[in-house]
């Protein structure tokens, strides 16, 4: 089982890197991109011993306590069998 975790800056926080990428895309005349948010991606390989509910709970805790700084970041994750 693997957990895929995506971390980005909160919407209320200026993402200078994402904005720089968005500006570059606009300058290069790519069409249809209105915004870019840059973030981090983690893949956690989980022990087989955990059932789905336990895995969800443990990953949620890891995301909250370690992988994000809740002052500036938010995250989403999905668990893949």
């Amino acid at each position: 089982m693997k957990a895929h975790v995506y971390v980005t800056l909160k919407r209320t926080v200026l993402d200078a890197q994402g904005q720089t990428v968005a500006d570059a895309l606009r300058r290069m005349q790519y069409r249809g991109v209105s915004d870019v948010r840059q973030g981090k991606y983690f893949v956690l390989t989980l022990d087989d011993g955990l059932d789905r509910a336990e895995a969800e709970a443990e990953v949620a805790r890891i995301v909250r306590e370690v992988l994000t700084n809740p002052v500036i970041e938010e995250a989403s994750f999905r668990i893949e069998e």
Binding site: A16, Q17, T20, N69, V71, I72
Partner: peptide, 11 residues
Amino acid sequence: LPGALMRNAGL
């Protein structure tokens, strides 16, 4: 301490 230190605005 409250708050966080982010990447410099000019990167």
